[in-house]
């Protein structure tokens, strides 16, 4: 009986240890992504944050100018530094406007007065899409929605931009 008891306990011991090791490994796998998500130290600047885009408000006037910056992004397998761009200017009230340059038709990059035939407009070179200065699409051209507007914050006279927000079509 004592013999049997010993056998069981040895098997149990092995069982416990193996489950223990496996469970520990599984827990490790589960914990790390979770920790990445909640631990602010491990979290890279995600696209939701406002970033300093390297331009001060004084440098912005009423003519749209293109600014480019990069954000760090960890996306599944890839760790990348995608570049982002915006067209920024001050409107009649002196407020800063930052528009996404991504054409709402199929995603080409639009430019301010990019075509000689269309002064005072954003122009998409891919299929002649047009937008007025406030980023609203011109009906009759391929895009069906206005250019998204970036969330913005001004800290100590420096422009910080967040995510581009989509708008309803004209």
């Amino acid at each position: 009986m004592s013999n049997k008891k010993q056998q069981v306990s040895r098997r149990q011991f092995l069982n416990y240890t193996l489950t223990g090791v496996g469970g520990f490994m599984a827990a490790g796998l589960l914990v790390s992504p979770l920790r990445m998500a909640i631990d602010p130290v491990l979290k890279h600047s995600s696209s939701g944050d406002f970033v300093n885009v390297g331009i001060s408000v004084d440098e912005i006037n009423d003519t749209p100018q293109r600014i480019d910056w990069t954000v760090e992004q960890v996306d599944g397998w890839y760790k990348s530094e995608p570049s982002r761009s915006a067209w920024v200017y001050k409107d009649e009230n002196g407020d800063v406007v930052a528009l996404s340059p991504i054409c709402t038709h199929l995603g080409c990059v639009v430019s301010w007065e990019g075509s000689d035939q269309h002064p005072d407009h954003f122009y998409c070179p891919c299929h002649n899409g047009l937008y007025t200065k406030d980023g609203v699409n011109v009906p009759g051209t391929p895009p069906l929605a206005p250019l998204p507007v970036y969330e913005q914050e001004i800290r100590d006279g420096i422009l910080f931009l967040g995510n581009p927000i989509e708008r309803e079509g004209a």
Partner: peptide, 10 residues
């Protein structure tokens, strides 16, 4: 890849 980004729709 930058070129693709500019003209991705075409």
């Amino acid at each position: 890849s930058q070129l693709e980004r500019e003209l991705t729709g075409r």
